[in-house]
Simulated scan of single mutants.
Amino acid sequence: MKKTVAIGIIGMLMMAVLAACGTSPENTSGSGGEEKKILKMGTSADYPPFEYVDTAKSDEIIGFDVDLANLIANELGYKIEIKDMDFNGLIGAIQADSVDFVMAGMTPTPERKKSVDFSDVYYTAQHMIVSAKDSNIKSIEDLAGKTVGVQLSSVQEEEAGKIAETVDIKIEKRTRIPELVQEIKAGRIDAAIIEDTVAKGYFDNNPDLEGFTLEGGSEEEAGSAIAFPKGSKLTADFNKVLKEKMENGEVDKLIVKWFGGEK
Protein backbone atom coordinates (compact mmCIF):
# COMPACT_ATOMS: atom_id res chain seq x y z
CA MET A 1 0.00 0.00 0.00
CA LYS A 2 2.81 2.39 0.95
CA LYS A 3 4.63 1.49 -2.28
CA THR A 4 1.49 2.22 -4.26
CA VAL A 5 1.03 5.59 -2.58
CA ALA A 6 4.71 6.44 -3.04
CA ILE A 7 4.57 5.59 -6.75
CA GLY A 8 1.46 7.71 -7.12
CA ILE A 9 3.11 10.68 -5.42
CA ILE A 10 6.23 10.33 -7.56
CA GLY A 11 4.08 10.17 -10.69
CA MET A 12 2.23 13.34 -9.70
CA LEU A 13 5.51 15.13 -9.02
CA MET A 14 6.90 14.12 -12.41
CA MET A 15 3.77 15.39 -14.16
CA ALA A 16 4.07 18.70 -12.33
CA VAL A 17 7.73 19.08 -13.35
CA LEU A 18 6.95 18.27 -16.98
CA ALA A 19 4.06 20.71 -17.00
CA ALA A 20 6.30 23.43 -15.62
CA CYS A 21 9.12 22.81 -18.10
CA GLY A 22 7.11 22.03 -21.21
CA THR A 23 7.37 18.68 -23.00
CA SER A 24 7.34 19.65 -26.67
CA PRO A 25 10.46 20.97 -28.44
CA GLU A 26 8.13 22.56 -30.98
CA ASN A 27 6.84 25.13 -28.51
CA THR A 28 8.43 28.13 -26.84
CA SER A 29 7.06 30.67 -24.39
CA GLY A 30 5.94 33.90 -25.98
CA SER A 31 5.12 37.25 -24.44
CA GLY A 32 2.54 37.00 -21.70
CA GLY A 33 3.39 33.33 -21.15
CA GLU A 34 1.53 31.96 -24.18
CA GLU A 35 3.03 29.10 -26.16
CA LYS A 36 4.36 29.81 -29.66
CA LYS A 37 4.80 26.92 -32.03
CA ILE A 38 8.15 26.77 -33.80
CA LEU A 39 8.15 26.64 -37.60
CA LYS A 40 11.29 25.31 -39.28
CA MET A 41 12.34 27.44 -42.22
CA GLY A 42 14.71 25.97 -44.79
CA THR A 43 17.07 28.31 -46.62
CA SER A 44 20.44 28.52 -48.33
CA ALA A 45 22.34 31.29 -46.56
CA ASP A 46 24.61 32.23 -49.46
CA TYR A 47 22.28 34.68 -51.17
CA PRO A 48 22.67 38.23 -49.86
CA PRO A 49 20.64 40.28 -49.30
CA PHE A 50 17.92 37.59 -49.16
CA GLU A 51 19.71 35.34 -46.63
CA TYR A 52 23.35 35.28 -45.57
CA VAL A 53 25.76 35.41 -42.65
CA ASP A 54 27.76 38.56 -41.97
CA THR A 55 30.76 36.72 -40.54
CA ALA A 56 32.40 39.97 -39.42
CA LYS A 57 29.57 40.49 -36.93
CA SER A 58 28.12 37.08 -35.98
CA ASP A 59 27.14 33.64 -37.20
CA GLU A 60 23.44 34.61 -37.33
CA ILE A 61 21.56 34.20 -40.62
CA ILE A 62 20.09 37.55 -41.61
CA GLY A 63 18.47 39.11 -44.67
CA PHE A 64 15.29 40.18 -46.41
CA ASP A 65 13.72 36.70 -46.42
CA VAL A 66 14.53 36.23 -42.73
CA ASP A 67 12.92 39.54 -41.75
CA LEU A 68 9.87 38.84 -43.90
CA ALA A 69 9.48 35.32 -42.53
CA ASN A 70 9.63 36.60 -38.96
CA LEU A 71 7.18 39.41 -39.77
CA ILE A 72 4.59 36.96 -41.12
CA ALA A 73 5.20 34.22 -38.56
CA ASN A 74 4.92 36.61 -35.61
CA GLU A 75 1.57 37.83 -36.93
CA LEU A 76 0.38 34.21 -37.02
CA GLY A 77 1.74 33.39 -33.55
CA TYR A 78 4.76 31.35 -34.63
CA LYS A 79 8.48 31.50 -33.92
CA ILE A 80 10.98 30.74 -36.72
CA GLU A 81 13.87 28.28 -36.50
CA ILE A 82 16.18 28.48 -39.53
CA LYS A 83 17.89 25.46 -41.08
CA ASP A 84 20.68 26.26 -43.53
CA MET A 85 21.36 23.82 -46.38
CA ASP A 86 22.39 23.67 -50.01
CA PHE A 87 19.82 25.21 -52.36
CA ASN A 88 19.41 22.01 -54.37
CA GLY A 89 18.30 20.19 -51.20
CA LEU A 90 15.51 22.57 -50.18
CA ILE A 91 12.62 20.98 -52.10
CA GLY A 92 13.67 17.56 -50.83
CA ALA A 93 13.72 18.88 -47.26
CA ILE A 94 10.09 19.97 -47.63
CA GLN A 95 9.10 16.59 -49.04
CA ALA A 96 10.91 14.81 -46.20
CA ASP A 97 9.13 16.97 -43.60
CA SER A 98 12.50 18.30 -42.38
CA VAL A 99 11.22 21.87 -42.70
CA ASP A 100 7.78 23.49 -42.62
CA PHE A 101 8.50 25.97 -45.41
CA VAL A 102 11.31 27.37 -47.53
CA MET A 103 12.34 30.98 -48.16
CA ALA A 104 15.46 31.29 -50.28
CA GLY A 105 14.74 33.72 -53.10
CA MET A 106 13.05 30.73 -54.76
CA THR A 107 11.19 31.12 -58.05
CA PRO A 108 7.84 29.26 -58.34
CA THR A 109 8.59 27.44 -61.59
CA PRO A 110 6.08 24.98 -63.12
CA GLU A 111 8.50 22.12 -62.40
CA ARG A 112 8.81 23.01 -58.70
CA LYS A 113 5.03 23.39 -58.42
CA LYS A 114 4.76 19.66 -59.11
CA SER A 115 6.51 19.00 -55.79
CA VAL A 116 5.49 21.88 -53.51
CA ASP A 117 2.92 24.65 -53.14
CA PHE A 118 3.91 28.32 -53.34
CA SER A 119 2.73 31.57 -51.83
CA ASP A 120 2.11 34.62 -53.97
CA VAL A 121 5.26 36.23 -55.39
CA TYR A 122 6.64 38.73 -52.87
CA TYR A 123 9.63 40.11 -54.81
CA THR A 124 10.61 40.29 -58.49
CA ALA A 125 14.12 40.60 -59.86
CA GLN A 126 15.98 39.93 -63.12
CA HIS A 127 18.77 37.64 -64.24
CA MET A 128 22.23 39.18 -64.62
CA ILE A 129 25.29 38.01 -66.53
CA VAL A 130 28.27 38.60 -64.21
CA SER A 131 31.87 38.60 -65.43
CA ALA A 132 35.27 40.20 -64.84
CA LYS A 133 35.49 43.82 -65.95
CA ASP A 134 38.26 43.00 -68.42
CA SER A 135 36.32 40.13 -70.03
CA ASN A 136 34.63 42.30 -72.67
CA ILE A 137 31.39 40.35 -72.15
CA LYS A 138 28.70 42.95 -72.81
CA SER A 139 25.95 40.90 -74.48
CA ILE A 140 24.57 37.39 -74.81
CA GLU A 141 26.41 37.04 -78.13
CA ASP A 142 29.72 37.69 -76.35
CA LEU A 143 29.21 34.46 -74.41
CA ALA A 144 29.86 32.36 -77.52
CA GLY A 145 32.60 29.85 -76.78
CA LYS A 146 32.61 30.81 -73.08
CA THR A 147 32.07 28.85 -69.87
CA VAL A 148 29.05 30.07 -67.88
CA GLY A 149 28.46 29.15 -64.24
CA VAL A 150 25.11 28.70 -62.50
CA GLN A 151 23.86 27.59 -59.10
CA LEU A 152 22.74 23.98 -59.08
CA SER A 153 18.95 23.49 -59.29
CA SER A 154 18.37 27.24 -59.60
CA VAL A 155 16.16 29.05 -62.11
CA GLN A 156 19.40 30.49 -63.49
CA GLU A 157 20.41 26.96 -64.47
CA GLU A 158 17.26 26.80 -66.59
CA GLU A 159 18.07 30.23 -68.06
CA ALA A 160 21.53 29.01 -69.08
CA GLY A 161 19.90 26.09 -70.87
CA LYS A 162 17.76 28.52 -72.87
CA ILE A 163 20.81 30.58 -73.82
CA ALA A 164 22.64 27.43 -74.88
CA GLU A 165 19.94 26.77 -77.45
CA THR A 166 21.13 29.75 -79.52
CA VAL A 167 24.66 30.51 -78.23
CA ASP A 168 27.51 28.00 -77.95
CA ILE A 169 28.31 28.00 -74.22
CA LYS A 170 29.61 25.46 -71.74
CA ILE A 171 27.59 25.34 -68.51
CA GLU A 172 29.30 24.73 -65.16
CA LYS A 173 27.25 24.12 -62.01
CA ARG A 174 28.21 24.97 -58.44
CA THR A 175 26.37 24.51 -55.16
CA ARG A 176 26.62 28.05 -53.80
CA ILE A 177 26.85 31.58 -55.19
CA PRO A 178 30.19 32.49 -53.55
CA GLU A 179 31.74 29.57 -55.42
CA LEU A 180 30.62 31.10 -58.73
CA VAL A 181 32.13 34.47 -57.80
CA GLN A 182 35.44 32.85 -56.86
CA GLU A 183 35.48 30.79 -60.07
CA ILE A 184 35.13 33.99 -62.13
CA LYS A 185 37.88 35.75 -60.16
CA ALA A 186 40.16 32.72 -60.55
CA GLY A 187 39.50 32.59 -64.30
CA ARG A 188 38.06 29.09 -64.23
CA ILE A 189 34.74 30.26 -65.66
CA ASP A 190 34.09 33.28 -67.88
CA ALA A 191 30.75 34.41 -66.50
CA ALA A 192 27.86 33.42 -64.25
CA ILE A 193 24.12 34.00 -64.25
CA ILE A 194 23.05 35.46 -60.90
CA GLU A 195 19.93 37.34 -59.77
CA ASP A 196 20.55 41.07 -60.21
CA THR A 197 19.94 42.16 -56.61
CA VAL A 198 22.26 39.43 -55.35
CA ALA A 199 24.92 40.23 -57.96
CA LYS A 200 24.92 43.91 -57.03
CA GLY A 201 25.72 42.93 -53.45
CA TYR A 202 28.82 41.10 -54.63
CA PHE A 203 29.88 44.08 -56.78
CA ASP A 204 30.24 46.16 -53.61
CA ASN A 205 33.02 43.86 -52.37
CA ASN A 206 34.43 42.88 -55.76
CA PRO A 207 35.08 46.02 -57.86
CA ASP A 208 36.78 43.86 -60.50
CA LEU A 209 33.38 42.37 -61.45
CA GLU A 210 30.54 43.81 -63.52
CA GLY A 211 27.36 42.63 -65.20
CA PHE A 212 24.34 43.33 -67.37
CA THR A 213 20.74 42.30 -66.90
CA LEU A 214 18.75 40.04 -69.20
CA GLU A 215 15.64 41.89 -70.25
CA GLY A 216 12.21 40.34 -70.54
CA GLY A 217 10.71 37.38 -68.74
CA SER A 218 7.58 37.08 -66.63
CA GLU A 219 7.17 37.57 -62.89
CA GLU A 220 7.10 33.81 -62.38
CA GLU A 221 10.39 33.44 -64.23
CA ALA A 222 12.25 35.77 -61.87
CA GLY A 223 9.98 36.26 -58.84
CA SER A 224 10.52 34.95 -55.31
CA ALA A 225 7.85 33.05 -53.38
CA ILE A 226 7.55 30.92 -50.23
CA ALA A 227 7.46 27.13 -50.73
CA PHE A 228 5.29 24.81 -48.61
CA PRO A 229 4.46 21.10 -48.54
CA LYS A 230 1.65 20.14 -50.88
CA GLY A 231 -1.71 20.86 -49.25
CA SER A 232 -0.22 22.74 -46.27
CA LYS A 233 -2.60 25.01 -44.38
CA LEU A 234 0.31 27.41 -43.95
CA THR A 235 0.12 28.44 -47.61
CA ALA A 236 -3.21 30.21 -47.20
CA ASP A 237 -2.28 31.58 -43.76
CA PHE A 238 0.99 33.07 -44.99
CA ASN A 239 -0.64 34.42 -48.15
CA LYS A 240 -3.27 36.26 -46.12
CA VAL A 241 -0.70 38.02 -43.95
CA LEU A 242 1.69 38.57 -46.87
CA LYS A 243 -1.06 40.37 -48.79
CA GLU A 244 -1.81 42.57 -45.78
CA LYS A 245 1.85 43.44 -45.28
CA MET A 246 2.32 44.27 -48.96
CA GLU A 247 -0.75 46.50 -48.96
CA ASN A 248 0.12 48.38 -45.75
CA GLY A 249 3.70 49.09 -46.85
CA GLU A 250 5.57 46.90 -44.37
CA VAL A 251 7.09 44.76 -47.14
CA ASP A 252 8.19 47.93 -48.97
CA LYS A 253 10.01 49.03 -45.80
CA LEU A 254 11.95 45.76 -45.78
CA ILE A 255 12.76 46.18 -49.48
CA VAL A 256 14.18 49.64 -48.80
CA LYS A 257 16.15 48.26 -45.82
CA TRP A 258 17.75 45.37 -47.72
CA PHE A 259 17.81 46.50 -51.35
CA GLY A 260 18.08 50.25 -50.96
CA GLY A 261 14.87 51.03 -52.84
CA GLU A 262 11.58 49.66 -54.16
CA LYS A 263 11.37 47.36 -57.17
Rank of each mutant, 00 (worst) to 15 (best):
K3E: 14
I10Y: 11
M12I: 15
V17P: 10
L18K: 01
A19F: 13
A19G: 13
S24P: 07
P25E: 09
P25D: 12
S31W: 08
I38R: 09
T43F: 04
T43S: 08
Y47H: 11
E51M: 15
E51A: 15
S58P: 07
S58W: 09
I62R: 07
D65P: 02
V66N: 02
N70G: 12
A73Q: 06
A73H: 06
K79Q: 15
I80F: 13
N88F: 13
G89I: 00
L90R: 06
I91P: 02
Q95H: 04
D97L: 04
V99K: 01
V102G: 08
A104W: 05
T107I: 14
V116A: 14
D120R: 12
Y122H: 05
Y123S: 11
Y123K: 08
Y123Q: 09
A125W: 05
A125E: 14
D134P: 06
K138Q: 13
D142L: 00
A144M: 09
V150W: 02
S154L: 03
E157K: 11
E157I: 06
E159S: 06
A160P: 00
A164Q: 15
K170D: 13
I171L: 02
K173F: 03
T175N: 14
E179K: 03
V181C: 13
A186G: 08
G187I: 01
R188H: 15
I189N: 02
A192Y: 02
I194H: 04
E195M: 04
D196F: 04
V198L: 03
V198S: 03
Y202L: 03
N206L: 03
P207D: 09
E215I: 05
A222M: 07
A222Y: 05
G223D: 10
A227N: 00
F228V: 01
F228H: 01
S232N: 08
A236R: 11
D237E: 15
K240I: 00
L242W: 00
E244P: 08
N248I: 02
N248F: 04
E250V: 02
V251I: 02
D252R: 01
I255T: 00
V256Q: 00
K263T: 08
